[in-house]
Amino acid sequence: MAPIDVSGLHVRFGEVHAVRGVSFRVAEGESYGIVGESGSGKSTVLRAICGLAPISAGAVTVAGEELGRRRSAGFHRRLQMVFQDPYASLHPRHTIDRVLAEPLAIHGFDDREARILRALDEVGLGRGFRFRYPHQLSGGQRQRVAIARALILEPRVMLLDEPTSALDASIQAEVLNLLDRLRAERGLTYILVSHDLAVVAHMCERLLVMQHGQAVEELTRDGLRARAAREPYTRDLLAASEGSRPAESSP
């Protein structure tokens, strides 16, 4: 499926020019991070890759094939997305069983019963959750359901849009560990979008910093740890992630 090659990507929504010429390349099996603040266009890049936002100019190539407006069912099976807010991304009146059965039906999978049970086991939920509704689950459990829904189609690439920012710190650790383990076991490719540099540093080997729809700087994890950022904006982000020290700094 991979590599994923994004070159000169522009996304326009009418007057709004959300993404202005972003390029990067993700190798098979790699975990790639995109960091930026709200409005930086980081989520829009992910949405353009999976077809939820228009590609106004530039190209997105996945496994040598340039993506057009319509994508095949096979493409969507191999590339799945997990959204930020598990309170909004699950249908409130569908049971977990129905949430997981729907993608299987769409893509014509057989053996649905066993696949649903396996997916629930894999994300650490257990079979007891199968016939519950989203409102009966906690935020972390719902995000596990969202991950199971993506995983059940046996994708090669997962697009993760702020998968833990709606969760408590302790639950975030559990979900990050789960994502880490799944990638190791299945050799998945991740593109992870987050506003939290620490999360990206933990999960990704390389990362792209975005601001105002443009790529500011690409860094490796080791470069980030060595504070080898060249751009002032990246340094600001790094400084802000350390927490505040106002008492000492104020005159």
Partner: peptide
């Protein structure tokens, strides 16, 4: 302890 760190 459960917070990820940039230092890793």
């Amino acid at each position: 302890n459960c917070l990820p760190r940039i230092e890793g």
